[in-house]
Simulated assay, not measured.
Amino acid sequence: MTFVLVLVVSLLSGLGQVAQKVAVERWRGHPVNLWRKLTSPWLMLGLASLGAGLLLWLLVLQQLEVGIAYPMLSLNFVWITLAAHRLFREHVDGRHWVGVALIMTGIVLLSTQR
């Protein structure tokens, strides 16, 4: 159950980052005043996702040692790399994918520790 919570926290954090990126991409090249930026639905989604992730993170910290829980948030690198590649059509080279694979390997090693 704890790993599921870590996974949900990671997904919410990743969603928050992607929503922020979408928000700023929509502002690019358009004169948008500060109020419209602050009330952007994408920015609101990003903040809500990050806020919900923070609250769930507190539950995770009640159940896991921070030295084990925090490195598992490296799953964010995986989600963001996939989103950058798929949603934003950013180039991700082979070295980056190897890094993602190493991160995933580390997460698996940590999740089996106890």
Rank of each mutant, 00 (worst) to 15 (best):
residue 94 G to L: 12
residue 96 H to G: 13
residue 54 L to T: 08
residue 112 T to Y: 12
residue 73 L to G: 07
residue 56 L to W: 02
residue 47 L to S: 05
residue 72 M to Y: 04
residue 74 S to V: 11
residue 51 G to D: 00
residue 108 V to A: 14
residue 51 G to K: 00
residue 98 V to N: 08
residue 88 F to P: 14
residue 112 T to V: 15
residue 110 L to D: 05
residue 17 Q to G: 05
residue 26 R to V: 08
residue 51 G to S: 03
residue 45 L to D: 02
residue 27 W to A: 05
residue 12 L to W: 09
residue 36 R to F: 02
residue 8 V to Y: 11
residue 85 H to L: 14
residue 108 V to H: 13
residue 8 V to E: 10
residue 55 L to T: 00
residue 19 A to C: 03
residue 93 D to K: 09
residue 97 W to A: 10
residue 66 V to H: 11
residue 107 I to H: 10
residue 73 L to T: 09
residue 90 E to A: 15
residue 34 L to G: 06
residue 60 V to I: 05
residue 53 G to T: 02
residue 73 L to M: 10
residue 10 S to Q: 07
residue 13 S to C: 10
residue 18 V to W: 03
residue 48 A to P: 00
residue 89 R to P: 13
residue 41 P to T: 03
residue 96 H to Y: 14
residue 11 L to V: 11
residue 26 R to P: 10
residue 105 T to G: 13
residue 86 R to N: 15
residue 43 L to Q: 01
residue 78 V to F: 14
residue 100 V to H: 12
residue 93 D to C: 13
residue 108 V to F: 13
residue 25 E to Y: 14
residue 48 A to N: 00
residue 79 W to G: 06
residue 106 G to Y: 11
residue 90 E to S: 13
residue 79 W to R: 08
residue 7 L to A: 15
residue 46 G to W: 01
residue 93 D to H: 11
residue 20 Q to W: 06
residue 38 L to Q: 08
residue 44 M to C: 03
residue 104 M to E: 10
residue 55 L to C: 02
residue 40 S to H: 03
residue 85 H to G: 15
residue 28 R to T: 07
residue 39 T to G: 06
residue 66 V to P: 10
residue 106 G to E: 13
residue 98 V to M: 10
residue 79 W to V: 09
residue 94 G to I: 10
residue 21 K to G: 00
residue 22 V to I: 06
residue 41 P to Q: 00
residue 68 I to K: 10
residue 57 W to K: 01
residue 46 G to I: 00
residue 5 L to Y: 08
residue 61 L to S: 04
residue 40 S to G: 00
residue 5 L to V: 09
residue 94 G to E: 10
residue 46 G to L: 01
residue 92 V to I: 15
residue 31 P to H: 09
residue 23 A to G: 03
residue 29 G to I: 11
residue 81 T to A: 12
residue 3 F to P: 12
residue 18 V to Q: 02
residue 78 V to H: 12
residue 20 Q to T: 05
